[in-house]
């Protein structure tokens, strides 16, 4: 869509413009090459599956975050929301074991709960932002604290553990897969592809970009600004629920430290992928690349002995800032 328009406005700058669009991809390919060069295990089936499956949680959330940011919003609460959803889900599943027994029935109820709670949390954020007209940053900063505190309270300061029987049944949702591809990867891919199509091809995606570009213009162009905004937060809430569904079988527990800083990782992935933080332009495939870049950095540092893995955060930080610097150059050329 708009990607093309950016290129053709300044054809003289061909190479650099291409880099703006393909920059994240180039960076990702460079990281893969570096990883393969440093450690022969890097491209092994086990490592690739591990990296992708671990990125799936942030990735699924980041796809939803792309819509929120594109329409000019922000959601800081997703990490705590995931922890809260995980806690509620575990408590309800544990509570149902005596009556329903151990089996898929309990787990399906748990999954449903995750999606419903995610929906409700997104609805609360969205209504406060669109109806009470409080800034997204403030609202989600508030709900971030609320969700985090609720999970701490529910877990009584400790850890909520899923019933061992249920855990055994649920385990394959994270650890198994279809035709050798782990389930989290499949779900992430499906969410990303759907997200990309919605962003590019549907009126909803177009409206998100219009609202993020200029809310007034959108309003005067018969766009239901509040409804679309609300829907982005609900969509994000549901995706947080889905991410939690994939996350719970991994450890089988939730505590006050679950999902810490996920919101910042998701936002960082969105920005690295080329979505504009102020809104108005977003691309889901870029977000996917952003997620992969962030998790590959950690993986490479762990595999290679070049730099201490403790510097992971520092390198991620440099990448985020670099991505924004590149975005700004694009603006100045216009």
């Amino acid at each position: 869509m708009t990607v093309d328009s950016a290129t053709s406005t300044a054809p003289r700058q061909g190479f650099r413009i291409d880099f703006h669009i393909w920059g994240p991809v180039v960076a990702l390919l460079a990281l893969i090459a570096l990883g393969a060069f440093l450690n022969s295990n890097f491209l092994s089936y086990g490592n690739v599956t591990n990296v992708l499956a671990r990125s799936a949680f942030i990735g699924i959330i980041a796809v939803g975050m792309t819509f929120v940011i594109t329409s000019g919003g922000l959601d800081l609460s997703v990490g705590s929301m995931a922890a809260f959803i995980a806690g509620v889900m575990i408590m309800i599943m544990n509570g149902l074991v005596p009556s329903m027994g151990v089996g898929w029935g309990v787990i399906l109820v748990g999954m449903l709960v995750a999606i419903v709670v995610g929906f409700a949390a997104g609805l609360v954020n969205g209504l406060l932002i669109t109806q009470a007209r409080i800034e997204a940053f403030i609202v989600t900063l508030g709900t971030m604290g609320i969700f985090r505190s609720l999970i701490t309270w529910l877990a009584n300061g400790g850890t909520l553990s899923l019933d061992y029987g249920v855990r055994e049944v649920y385990r394959p949702v994270y650890y198994d897969g279809l035709l050798g591809v782990a389930w989290p990867i499949i779900v992430f891919a499906a969410v990303a592809i759907l997200g990309e199509i919605i962003m590019r091809k549907t009126p909803f995606g177009r409206h998100c970009a219009a609202i993020g570009s200029n809310e007034q213009v959108a309003l005067y162009s018969a766009v239901h600004v509040n409804r679309v905004r609300l829907m982005t937060y609900i969509l994000l809430g549901i995706l947080v629920g889905i991410a939690t569904i994939m996350y719970v079988p991994r450890l089988g527990s939730a505590s006050s430290s679950t999902g810490v800083l996920w919101e910042l990782e998701a936002i960082a992935a969105v920005i690295i992928g080329g979505t504009v933080l102020k809104g108005g332009f977003g691309r889901v495939w870029g977000t996917v690349v952003g997620v992969l870049i962030l998790s590959l950095i950690g993986n490479i540092l762990n595999l290679a002995n070049l730099v201490s893995p403790y510097l992971n955060g520092a390198i991620q930080g440099v990448i985020i800032i670099l991505a924004v610097v590149l975005q700004r150059q694009k603006k100045m050329e216009r």
């Binding site: 708009t2 549907t202 177009r206 409206h207 200029n214 007034q216 005067y220 162009s221 332009f281």
Partner: peptide, 27 residues
């Protein structure tokens, strides 16, 4: 301020008001 999205192309601006004429599900 209220009429056009200055950082978007002509196509996206042109169809914004009447977007439903270009397909409900996919544009």
């Amino acid at each position: 301020g209220r009429g056009l999205l200055l950082r978007k192309s002509m196509r996206e601006n042109l169809t914004l008001l009447a977007l439903n004429r270009f397909g409900r599900l996919a544009i």
